[in-house]
Amino acid sequence: MSPGLLYALAGMLLFVMGLAGFALLRHLLRRLMAFNLVGSGTFLVLVGLAQRPDGEPDPVAQALVLTGIVVAIAATALALVLMRRWFDLTGRTRLDGEADE
């Protein structure tokens, strides 16, 4: 098995784990981390698969993932701003209709 495929499969597992976490977890901060795992898993799949068995890295996939990483941190930061406003206004760390811990 080539390293690229190994990391791509790991990325796929992270994607599935993150998705399950996003569906099951209730705390907004935990959900945000699960969502970030989905993103990181996708990045690993993209870069891992773009690497050919001869080991040559693909600059196109890397460039696209680089923009993805920066957009992900901006989205995470924005989500945190919204989350903390929500907490300040309602005192809750979950969405409406869900029982607090």
Binding site: S2, G4, L5, A8, L9, M12, F15, V16, V45, L49
Partner: peptide
Amino acid sequence: GGILAPVVVAVA
């Protein structure tokens, strides 16, 4: 995961 794994291997 069971569906995606063969897909990833096939693409690779």
